[in-house]
Amino acid sequence: MKKLIYIATLLTAMVMVGCEKFEDPKPYQAWTDEMIIADGYQIVSVNDLKKVYYDEFANDYSANSITIEDKLAIKCKVISTDQFGNVYRTLYLQDYSGPAGGGIEVKVGKTSMYNDYKMGQVVYVKADGLVLGDYRRMLSLGTEPTSASYANDYLDIQPLIDAHLLRGEVEGLKESDYLVVNASNVDQYFPKADKSVDPKYFGTLVRLEGITCAHGYHSGEKASFPSYQDDDYNNLTKLPDGTPFNTWAYNHDNKQYYGSTLFKYNNTNYFIARTSGYCKFAQSEVPANGTKCDITAIVSFYCSKSGGYAKYQLVLNNDLDVQKAI
């Protein structure tokens, strides 16, 4: 009997020892200015960082790149989200001071980044070793180029991302984080698109108030709007079945193509919203022709290799960022 009790006790003890508990980890510590400076970095504005490129390639509009040698860091807020699929593998950051400090695309290379980088979250970028590259007059931050077509490449690998992108607090976006543009001031910020315009506001978060959605042909543009571009670079305004194309992008029969929709204040100041066929709102309808809209988007720039055919483009995070103007 004693033996039975002893063995039963031993078995019970084994049972108790066997169960393992896991504690929830603590939240990550947010980076601060002090921590960046303590690592030996100088915090500069985004536009000051971009000067590293412009000082080298002032009027050279080829796809150049330059590696940042100095220990420079930028302090930004996240202004893009890839949750809805129109932004893909890349992160748009705007200077913490606001649109006037500049905005920049960081070619991170990961997907579902909205889980790690929240809209309005403070992000520091330790820029030393990264490469500023030009693509059709838009600068981005990445790594050494690996193809002749692009001036830099995606960071891609997590150790590299962890070394350069440091997350701060999630402060959210304030009114001062938006560049408010309307018919009366658009020329001040976004004059007629030309290769030589001041890139100060490229890559920033804008709210375009009272801008009109314009269907059909537009002077200076080859395509009609809205349209999508197929594999052969044809700009098409009708679906294969003949019905008019009127959605943000093309997503039919397992094929996805970019869509373009034009918004204008006037014939000189206009923007083209370029939307991916893979995004979640690709098949949502664009505003009707003539509809006045308020749009929150990231402004980017595009021109041909020679610098001609320049235009402002809009990168939409979400179709809900396009509202009918009151």
């Binding site: 980890p25 939240p27 889980n115 050494e144 690998i157 997590q158 150790p159 590299l160």
Partner: peptide, 27 residues
């Protein structure tokens, strides 16, 4: 170059081989 960088990370950081559960919790 990226391949080498990834390989170096695996070789030098023993935690590379683990699922980063702390990260998942933080997300």
């Amino acid at each position: 170059a990226k391949a080498q960088a990834v390989a170096n990370a695996w070789l030098n950081n023993p935690d590379m081989k683990y699922i980063n559960l702390d990260k998942l919790y933080n997300i």
